[in-house]
Structures are given as structure tokens and as C-alpha cells.
């Protein structure tokens, strides 16, 4: 069991990161901290997908005349690139909303906001 986990340490790390992120989202009251937790979750998933594309002794998959395999899989990296773009736009929107919440209520602590609603 331990050996199996050790061999898949990259996957284990992303699951641990994911759980930390989820904990922060649920447990923290500050909206920015909540959102940082979400960013940690996203990063964990990106790391997981990147790790999936790892090939032992893989070379960059660039097709030249004398290119020889095995190649690393390029697909996960393109996926994560798209995923990062999505994450950045989510972050931008969330920060905009947080600024507007602060202007209206003067606080970004979830418990204080609940009292004001």
C-alpha cells in the first residue's frame, strides 16, 4: 500500500492539494481566502492532468526528420493551458465581485455579510 502510494506520489500530492483547497473554500470566512482556496483546487487538478502526460524517458513531441520516441504526451499540456485561461477569467470575475461587495457593504468577511443581508 505504502509502496503503491510512493510510486504514485504525484497523484497523491494533487489529491492532498485538492483537499487543502476544498478545506480553505469551506472553512475560511474571508472571501479572498475562499477564492484562494479555489485557486489551490484548480492548481491541484492542473498538476494532476500534467502528471498524467508524463512518459518515462519521454522526449518533447516535436516532429523533425530524425525524431525518435518515446514521446511525452502533448495533449495534457494543451488542456491545462486552456484550463489556466479559464481559471484566470474566473479569478478576474471573482475579484471584481469582491471589490463591488466591499464598496457596498464595507466588509468581505462572510459572517459579517450574512448579518447584514
Amino acid at each position: 500500500m505504502i509502496v503503491m502510494l510512493w510510486h504514485n506520489i504525484d497523484y497523491v500530492a494533487s489529491v492532498v492539494l485538492f483537499s487543502i483547497g476544498l478545506y480553505v473554500v469551506i472553512a475560511k470566512e474571508n472571501l479572498i481566502k475562499k477564492f484562494l482556496g479555489l485557486n489551490i483546487m484548480e492548481t491541484a487538478v492542473f498538476a494532476f492532468i500534467i502528471a498524467l502526460g508524463m512518459v518515462e524517458d519521454g522526449r518533447p513531441p516535436i516532429m523533425t526528420g530524425d525524431a525518435q520516441g518515446p514521446f511525452a504526451s502533448p495533449l495534457p499540456q494543451t488542456l491545462v493551458l486552456t484550463g489556466i485561461v479559464v481559471a484566470v477569467s474566473t479569478t478576474a470575475l471573482a475579484l471584481t465581485l469582491i471589490i463591488r461587495i466591499f464598496r457596498r457593504f464595507g466588509t468581505i468577511e462572510a459572517n459579517e455579510l450574512r448579518e447584514m443581508e
Binding site: L38, V45, F48, I49, P76, T90, I98, R104
Partner: peptide, 28 residues
């Protein structure tokens, strides 16, 4: 309450999107 509602929606929506992406990673 529009911004608060939107933020609440964003937080839960984004978490569920990340779960879906995680699952897609598994399937891939």
C-alpha cells in the same frame, strides 16, 4: 444582494467545475 448572490453562485459553480475537470482527468 446581487453581488453576494453572484459570488456565492461563482464559488459553488467553480468548485463543481473543478470536480468535473478532475473527473475528466481521471477518464483521460
Amino acid at each position: 444582494i446581487a453581488e453576494m448572490a453572484a459570488f456565492k453562485y461563482l464559488l459553488m459553480g467553480a468548485v463543481s467545475s473543478v470536480l468535473v475537470l478532475f473527473a475528466i482527468g481521471f477518464l483521460y
